[in-house]
Design a binder for these strands. Structure first.
Lengths: 198, 198
DNA sequence: CGTAGTCTTGAGTATCCTCAACGAGGGTGG
DNA sequence: CCACCCTCGTTGAGGATACTCAAGACTACG
């Protein structure tokens, strides 16, 4: 599979694809972070998924893209797998087909998990669940979490306002559940208490 | 693919599978309606997806089930496709593998759509979006929608309280956007206005 | 026909959103 | 190199929304 990949690099806030583009490739994020989003009728933006290294995205049986995907960080490297070559490969090598199904299943699992987070009632519960998700997915030390995205991104991801995100983080800091060494760094002090919030 | 299916029938509120069960089959709902749900720590229930005839479910690469799936209506008929036989079939018939990937992609599209609905801010917007979704998916006359599930199910699906669901429906009825011939029937009078709510 | 569960409506309260102001940081241009 | 500007992040005040608790009506089912 790696043989048919074309690697492309994007800068901060550049569009990897946008709604309405023809579906030509499946993608795998190699380095950096990206967001999958859409603009709602009233001008609000909804972020459907954050993408981290190793995540596949763009898996679709439609002809055209439903969402926009944008690089969150600079130096976002993406492997692009042309659909028709993937299909050909899957036809000749069943194990590739199996791998593709696995990847789709992983994507399903991630989205279902996401629905559970969105289903939380209170804003503190959403923010705590978000931090736990980031701790798990942004691999590395799970106590020192990097949040590459802005507060606005987090708000659009959790479907709450920026101010509420900020307040929830401040509250967690005051209660010594987390520390905020910088705007984009979170240190989890009390994992159990954070999990209790959800 | 149809050759390897075993058909089973479930009654109202019976479990098709539950969290923790080993993953042995993929399923296709033939008749009736089902819900995919999970119980949260605080005793709340979250419904992740409603399943209608034609929907595939249980697609997973994990070893054990993450959610419960329960029949909503009586006489729910399900086609069960054993995983290992599906894999064998996909290995010998690439077009089956392709079909399975398509189904997974459909499932992804449905879940993403669902995230957008959950992301709506106000309760009336969620309920309106829900009605539109039901009008589209419960095939048949799209103006006369059947809601087989209870108000509690709808509440757990939209992550709002039962009372709020009830109030939103009553409000839409008062404003002549919908009619409610019975508790489980909705007639859409003004589709445009309903879409405006979202 | 009775009962348990479902659905609706009301009242009071907590939560979150909106609007507003301010501080901090980063980038740009003089 | 510094001043400026613009975006991002935080905090506060006020108001709208939805939740909780409660009670009553209706239904479906045994």
């Amino acid at each position: 599979m790696e043989g048919i990949a074309a690697f492309r690099r994007w800068g901060r806030d550049q569009e990897i694809y946008r709604r309405g583009d023809p579906v030509q490739c499946w993608f795998r994020l190699e380095t950096g972070v990206a967001r999958k989003s859409t603009l709602l009728g009233d001008g609000r933006r909804r972020i459907v998924d954050f993408l981290f290294p190793g995540d596949f995205f763009g898996i679709s049986s439609r002809r055209y893209r439903e969402f926009d995907v944008t690089a969150v960080t600079g130096n976002t490297l993406v492997a692009c797998y042309p659909c028709h070559r993937l299909e050909a490969l899957a036809n000749s090598h069943p194990e590739v087909g199996r791998r593709l199904r696995e990847l789709a299943a992983d994507s399903i699992a991630r989205l279902q998990e996401r629905i559970l987070v969105l289903g939380h009632v209170t804003a503190p519960a959403k923010v705590s669940a978000f931090l736990l998700e980031m701790a798990e997915r942004s691999c590395g030390d799970s106590a020192a979490v990097i949040l590459p995205m802005s507060r606005y991104d987090i708000a659009d991801y959790l479907a709450i306002s920026v101010e509420t995100v900020s307040r929830a983080l401040t509250d967690l800091r005051h209660r010594k559940v987390i520390r905020l060494p910088s705007k984009h760094e979170v240190t989890i002090i009390d994992l159990a208490m954070l999990a209790d919030e959800t």
